[in-house]
Amino acid sequence: MSALQQYGILFALTLGSIGFVLSLYALARAIGRNRAEPGKDVPATAGSLSRDPVWVRYHARFGGYALLFLAFDMEMAFMYPWSVVYRQEGLVALLDMGVFLAILFLGLLYGWSQGALRRQ
């Protein structure tokens, strides 16, 4: 089965699941109707009514981790092709990736020492 046919199957699988979900929605709509009542559409906050919009500038405390993760994430892209040919290439591959990972680990250590790896 050629690669393109496999992608076709995956695409069909996606459309199939979306179709399944839409048929489930249609079945539910056929069973009963929704009624808009006062207070029902306010997001539930444990028994008290708070209508204020919460779409504010959310302060995420993992800023230090996120920056390091953005750069560190790329290491994965280089490691997959390397891992596939590793056994065949032998020692030079190990040393090669060893240098690469050591460099990245150096960056991680620097971040750690500068206090990036904590809740800002």
Binding site: L67, A71, M74
Partner: peptide, 20 residues
């Protein structure tokens, strides 16, 4: 292509560092 992807990731990392 891998190198250009690295550029994208690195540019975002430094850009957000500057933004913070």
């Amino acid at each position: 292509v891998l190198i250009v992807m690295t550029v994208m990731a690195v540019e975002m990392a430094v850009g957000f560092g500057v933004a913070i």
